[in-house]
């Protein structure tokens, strides 16, 4: 996997959310850091992504583009706030 950042999640997240989710703010449930998704540390390999907190390195969310499905797991974030 390549170490990248949350910008790369824009495509996969566009399949499950309207608007740009990488500009959304979210709070890390582990350390409380609030950042936009684009600022997260992301490990990516084309079809699967793990986003981690820029401050404490906990898993914020994972996305798997599995064939025609996109599966989003958001166990590490709260107060997810989208700009509208």
């Amino acid at each position: 996997m390549q170490k990248l950042d949350g910008n790369v999640l824009a495509g996969p997240l566009s399949e499950v959310m309207t608007g740009d989710a990488t500009s959304a703010h979210a709070r890390c449930v582990h350390c409380g850091d609030v950042a936009v998704i684009a600022q997260a540390v992301v490990y990516a390999d084309g079809s699967r992504f793990v986003a981690r907190c820029r401050r404490c390195d906990s898993v914020l969310l994972t996305i798997v583009e599995a064939g025609d499905d996109v599966r989003l797991t958001m166990t590490g974030v709260t107060a997810f706030t989208m700009p509208v």
């Binding site: 996997m1 490990y43 390999d45 699967r48 793990v50 981690r52 390195d57 898993v59």
Partner: peptide
């Protein structure tokens, strides 16, 4: 080669 795939640090 041997690609490196890691989901974290």
């Amino acid at each position: 080669d041997w690609p490196v795939l890691t989901a974290g640090a």
